[in-house]
Design a protein around this nucleic acid. Structure first.
Lengths: 230, 230
DNA sequence: ACGCCCGCGTTCCTATAGGATTTGTGGCAT
DNA sequence: ATGCCACAAATCCTATAGGAACGCGGGCGT
């Protein structure tokens, strides 16, 4: 997290306002589990917590609403979105299967050298990331996972598909955290990511799409098997 | 200082807050063309215009940002998103081709009787809508067009795909208004919509998807031919 | 004339105040 | 004990004030 107050050599990097910081903080807390699903997110309370006035908090929450991670009820306030049900998860995977293979196909055709390097690094990070039992230990693993998919969406070079993926991406990441399952499938998941990457490297868009379908379907299969709860 | 409880006497329980009304008003203005692409949207100015304080306006704009219809630059304010370039349009159509056929396929499988009736009515409204030269005259046509696609997305019965479509839908509607082309293709477009509807009626998901692909591709083709500007 | 500087208005941004609404609690009647 | 109402605290929501930055136009020096 770069500190915006420290500008580089006279270059005032795109200055951020307080609401942006609040947005980032809330997003991080949501992803960290510090804000549990279903919990109320009081505007005044958050303002006290972050030592700012309620105004920027209100703006940040308004922006967060569209991510689906918080829900608003008029005159009642915001709450963290409830835990995914089995149906929610099935819908999310269905949506991924509609969008991500397309992203993979396009990204394969339009991939830049830099993008390819970043993708390689993401897979490498997946392999080397610690995979302990606590959240802090596999946080970097989840981050690399999300980064891999995000990079492909970005390399598809379509602002609308990227926006569509990003709205899903937050939910996917949130599920990775709260879905109930830890990391029990790292080896297989890494192999699937590797397969997508190799298809990219060989410049075969159709195969890249197929490998992505395969990956998402297997993620769905594993999660559905691991978490039979409701 | 208008008293809401008196002013809204006709609305028994207006469980909406001021920011919601501002949001609706701004959305309508954006869709009406009263706010032209590229124009600055001053928070204070809008507050004066709508006779409210800047606070609700700020919140409404924060929510509008994710629709892509307004863009924000920190410490500089909001501007109406610029006109679509040819490239933007191509990307939008590419995104539609990724999502809408999937929606059509799923909607065909999961369609409710009520949904089917609403879909029939949308096509009927398309046929009977006036198609004059001015905006007011073909507004209802565009509304029915958008409603048709929105209904299919809703009937797909997947909250994430619906959200993904909705972010596109606003842009699509905005392009219909500002794309530069009026309605020169109504007969063909209606026939294509009819074809999708008939596939739905016959309960053939694959054909519904194919017809949707066909429709979007032809929309793209006509628009690219009609608006060779840039 | 041309460029520079400075004041002025506009706008964004945040904090604060106060009214309106909801929620939780305790007491009272049934 | 249970249901209902009043009261209090917390919260949401809107308005307003003022600081900071940006844009602009006029005046001054070269």
């Amino acid at each position: 997290m770069p500190d915006p107050s420290v500008a580089r050599a006279g270059f005032p990097v795109s200055r951020q306002v307080l609401a942006d910081h609040v947005y980032e903080a809330l997003l991080e807390w949501l992803m960290d589990g510090r804000l549990e699903p279903g919990a109320a997110v009081s505007i005044d309370g958050m303002a006290r917590e972050l030592d700012v006035s309620p105004t920027p908090v209100r703006e940040a929450l308004a922006r967060l609403e569209h991510t689906g991670m918080v829900r608003r009820v008029a005159l009642k306030g915001y709450r963290v979105a409830p835990v995914f049900t089995r149906e929610d998860f099935a819908e999310l995977m269905e949506a991924r299967l509609s969008i991500e293979p397309v992203n993979a196909r396009l990204a394969c055709s339009r991939m830049t050298p830099d993008g390819l390097e970043a993708l390689k690094k993401a897979v490498e990070d997946l392999k080397t990331a610690p995979r302990g039992g606590t959240f802090a230990e596999y946080r970097s693993y989840l981050e690399a996972d999300e980064r891999f998919h995000q990079l492909i969406a970005a390399q598809a070079n379509n602002q609308f598909l990227l926006a569509a993926y990003n709205t899903l991406g937050g939910q996917i990441q949130r599920f990775r955290l709260f879905g109930g399952v830890g990391i029990t499938d790292a080896e297989q998941a890494i192999a699937e990511h590797q397969a997508v990457l190799e298809a990219m490297l060989s410049g075969d868009p159709e195969r890249a799409a197929e490998m992505m379908v395969d990956h998402v379907e297997k993620v769905r299969g594993r999660a559905m098997a691991d978490a039979p709860e409701d």
